[in-house]
């Protein structure tokens, strides 16, 4: 099964990289852009019996490695 994990900074956690990107977008003439936040996407293939099994495995991967839950939230999408 295929899984996509999206990791984002929790609201309220300072994101200087997002701010720098926002500034650069402004420099390119894109006006009206705000609240830019940088995150990460992981695509994986997982051996699993069904979607629920895959989700449970990937969820464990997220809490143990892919995300640092002190500062990051994550979401998991499973597809065939």
């Amino acid at each position: 099964m295929k899984a996509r994990v999206v990791v984002t900074l929790k609201p309220g956690v300072l994101d200087p990289q997002g701010q720098a990107i926002e500034g650069s977008l402004g420099g390119l003439g894109f006006t009206g852009v705000s609240a830019v936040r940088q995150g990460k996407i992981f695509d994986l293939e997982v051996d699993a019996t069904d979607a629920e099994d895959a989700r449970s495995k990937v969820d464990s991967m997220c809490t143990r490695l892919l995300a640092n839950t002190v500062i990051e939230n994550y979401s998991v999408e499973i597809s065939e």
Binding site: V13, P16, Q17, V70, I71
Partner: peptide, 10 residues
């Protein structure tokens, strides 16, 4: 406890 993030100055 806690975490070390990218320097605020980048």
């Amino acid at each position: 406890p806690g975490v070390l993030m990218r320097n605020a100055s980048l």
